[in-house]
């Protein structure tokens, strides 16, 4: 019966390894070899003989176990031979001319499958880690949003050209898919009093024509810090530290004035190209800079919409394009690859 056989295999293994451990010289080893691996009377041979009594479908598994034992013992014997004494005591069976059998350290292993986390997950985790070290807690917000959260409370009135930058998917029920992660700012402030220090990674949607740098579904990471006395210089400090953390020491930032309805003063933030160190290359289109973030002080109109005291509190907010960051970090040249999920792409990260 197989259980007995399997038990016997284990028993033989224990005994053989113990005998090997006790061997003091080449002669001892040879005795052990003959007792266990010997061709005519070795104990492994007995085990193999017992195989024929097993049902056919179990024979294969049991046989494999015995073979594994044989390989283990041969290896252990060779290893032990290298320690106990001079050459000459090589076990039989192929060792002969070349001296003692050695492990081939140049041989590769058999491939085993390995899983991978999606490169966007890895990027978002890196963002969470870096901002976590700066005291920012990650939170989430809904993707199906109201006009109030996506636009009105963010100082983007209806029929205003400011809405042009935020083309939006609308749902038949009157709700919409958020076109940026900023509505989560509003939700956080509606539910919490300062101090606030959060980041909001998440999915956003815009009906952009699809090409290598645009897809209708992508990710952003919003950041928000509100307290007494938070300044534009604090924003510069936090983003400089975070980008060094994400893109490596020496990464430089460039703040350019810009306009967003929900921040004021507003800035577009470029980072120095990590590939050419600002010299100019293909990635940064020879400019030395890559546009990666939008940022600014929270517009008092937004504080008013959520009932914060605009005289007492100030704050900053920023938004990072996650795909953009990942494309830059990993040299990915087509945004469509992220959500396509070709396994050959996924396995590279």
């Amino acid at each position: 019966m197989s259980s007995t056989l399997s038990a016997r295999v284990e028993e033989v293994r224990v005994q053989a390894l113990s005998a090997l451990a006790d061997a003091r010289n080449a002669a001892d080893l040879e005795k052990v070899r003959i007792e266990y691996l010997g061709r005519s009377q070795g104990r492994l041979r007995d085990l193999l003989g017992a195989l024929k009594d097993l049902p056919a479908e179990e024979r294969r598994a049991a046989g494999a176990k015995i073979n594994a034992l044989k390989e283990d013992l041969t290896a252990a014997l060779a290893e032990r031979a290298g320690r106990v004494g001079p050459a000459g005591a090589a076990p039989g069976g192929g060792g002969g001319a070349g001296g003692p059998a050695r492990a081939d350290l140049t041989q590769p292993g058999l491939a085993r499958p390995v899983g991978h986390l999606h490169v966007l997950t890895q990027t978002i985790e890196a963002v969470k880690d870096v901002f976590g070290a700066l005291g920012f807690s990650p939170v989430e917000g809904p993707e199906v949003e109201t006009e109030r959260h996506n636009f009105d409370a963010l100082n983007i009135p209806k029929d205003h050209p400011a809405r042009d930058g935020f083309d939006t998917f609308f749902l038949s029920c009157g709700l919409l898919l958020r076109s940026h992660t900023s509505p989560a700012q509003v939700r956080v402030m509606e539910s919490q009093t300062p101090p606030v220090r959060v980041i909001v990674p998440g999915r956003v949607y815009r009906p952009d024509a699809v090409d290598a740098t645009h897809f209708y579904c992508f990710h952003q990471c919003e950041g928000l810090m509100v307290d007494e006395g938070v300044s534009f210089s604090d924003l510069r400090t936090v983003l400089s530290m975070a980008m060094e953390g994400l893109l490596g020491p020496g990464t430089k930032l460039r703040f350019r004035p810009s306009f967003f309805p929900f921040t004021e003063p507003s800035a577009e933030v470029d980072v120095s190209c990590i590939f050419c160190k600002g010299e100019g290359c293909k990635v940064c289109k020879q400019s030395g800079w890559v546009e990666l973030l939008g940022a600014g002080l929270v517009n008092p109109a937004v504080f008013e919409a959520v009932g914060y005291d605009t005289e007492r509190y100030t704050g900053f907010a920023f938004g990072i394009g996650v795909e953009r960051l990942a494309m830059f970090r990993y040299g990915i040249n087509d945004i469509r690859l992220f959500l396509e999920n070709d396994v050959r792409f996924l396995e590279q990260f």
Binding site: L134, P138, E140, P195, R197, D234, V238, S240
Partner: peptide
């Protein structure tokens, strides 16, 4: 000029919380 504003200020420490 944004670039002339300081980028090294001190900010109070805070413990981040993950949900």
């Amino acid at each position: 000029g944004y670039e002339r504003l300081p980028a090294v200020t001190s900010i109070p420490v805070a413990v981040p919380r993950k949900s």
